[in-house]
Design a protein around this nucleic acid. Structure first.
Lengths: 167, 167
DNA sequence: ATTTATGCAAATCCTTTGCAAATCT
DNA sequence: AGATTTGCAAAGGATTTGCATAAAT
């Protein structure tokens, strides 16, 4: 059965946890301890992370709050569905980042140190929408990843392995 | 030992096979039958494909030209290194497309039928380079993927599963 | 004759799933 | 109580790897 939840209903003044609880309720899902603990941990830091990194962090919190790998994966998926997290696939791993209450942005990706640098570009959306219009395409989002070498890594001789170019 | 091959040395008038042979030689790698057969098959069609699809195509060619799965993967990787193919990771699979002798472009990705529509946008590079300059970032490439619904799929009610938004 | 590449099957990595037990409402 | 969620371990899918054999230089 389709949920009645719509993005326009988002109340931006809620904390991520409150927002997630609202989402769970709207779908008839339960507010459980593992879910609460995961959201709290996820939003305690702003850096990008992957499932395995989060799992390790989860295993370091108070022993009565430990969560299994399966639940970490399942909850990350729900957080994406809820619009709290955004996910993207880099060359090897799937990374997550905060989406809720965080402005839209894109990334510079350093192929050497794997650092992700965020930037904001309104012009990009204009280009995107113009292209979409031309193709009668209905845009729901985009992903723009600029690959190369960050400031720090430029000092060392760059590597030239095409294998890493795709991300 | 580092190869002396540089992108500026590319002779654009070569066929993909010739170009690959040149690449192999420059690296002291051997020109083998499986490699020749794969390159020929890969460049016999322009559509995007993944490793498994190519493997199936390989198994349908003349029986004396069959190639194993491992060799398909290994050769695809070399074709990317050689600059003949470009690869990108979609939600589930890694797809390849012709790069050699083909103009730079980006894609509209239909989340429903998984179609990839190519488009060209010079303005995009300007934005990219401007942002990079601001961050003292050395660009080697980029990937811009616009997600949504293509013209054909717009006629049916769109799905709203955030899980598919990341590609 | 050497050295590299291939094919096979086993191994790996990341993620998902089945199911009984635990936890919510 | 009744339904959903969790944790575990096993299953999956895609890709990589070790090693003996085949092929290229």
């Amino acid at each position: 059965m389709a949920s009645t939840f719509e993005l326009s209903d988002v109340n931006v003044s809620l904390t991520p946890l409150e927002r997630f609880e609202e989402f769970l309720q709207s779908r008839g899902m339960r507010i459980t301890k593992p879910r609460r603990v995961i959201v709290t941990e996820v939003f305690s830091r702003h850096e990008h992370f992957d499932a395995e990194e989060l799992l390790i962090r989860m295993q370091q919190v108070a022993s009565d709050a430990k969560v299994s790998r399966a639940t970490v994966y399942r909850t990350l998926s729900e957080l994406v569905n809820a619009g709290l997290l955004r996910q993207m696939t880099l060359s090897t791993r799937t990374v997550y980042e905060h989406d809720y209450g965080y402005p839209q942005h894109d990334h510079l990706y350093c192929q050497k140190c794997e650092k992700l640098i965020e930037f904001h570009s309104p012009e990009l959306n204009e280009i995107r929408d113009a292209v979409a219009k031309k193709h009668n395409f209905n845009v729901t989002g985009h992903r723009f990843l600029v690959t190369g070498l960050c400031e720090d890594c430029r000092r060392r001789p760059p590597r030239r392995d095409r294998r890493l170019d795709h991300v």
